[in-house]
Amino acid sequence: MKWCSKDLDMYLQASEYVDTAIVPLIPITWGAQKKNVILKGEFPLILSEEIERQLKGRVFLFPAMTYLASELDEDVLKRISALTSELEHEGMPFTVFITSDARWTGSEELGDRLVNIPPVPLEHMDEEYQREIVSEQVKHILQIVTKKWQNTL
């Protein structure tokens, strides 16, 4: 389900079936590095949408959580844990952060909530190849997410 009122109505009808929040974790900057930073955001956003399409009935795709590239790790992590604890409290036991920013690799606070995907510059590829790469990565993330679910059905 997406972040819109139509899908929220659907959620309210079937909230017992929805237990996973998908949150893209996206750095932003308008400094010299912007091209690089945009690249790190583009791919996880595409993947998150595709995951939502495949698992529409059990996940809720949240608007991206953004942070300035210059923001301190601890400040970002503080916001992240505020979000996850609110979600857990409000009946979303699983939160999955999807990012291509290597900065969060091995972060203890994020732990197994983090799905880190190396960024792929899709802009120069032809469409067929793009779709192949995206669907490969989506399959990979699907496995991670469905594994989380395995013991809960």
């Binding site: 079937a14 079936y17 698992l55 529409k56 009935g57 059905l153």
Partner: peptide, 27 residues
């Protein structure tokens, strides 16, 4: 598109039911 809540079903991905369509969300 799964008629339950709209996930995408796959063919034969449930090991115990290889000849059925399977929805990964709620089985």
């Amino acid at each position: 598109i799964c008629k339950h809540l709209g996930c995408t079903v796959d063919w034969g991905t449930d090991p115990s039911h290889p000849n059925q369509f399977y929805c990964p969300c709620h089985g």
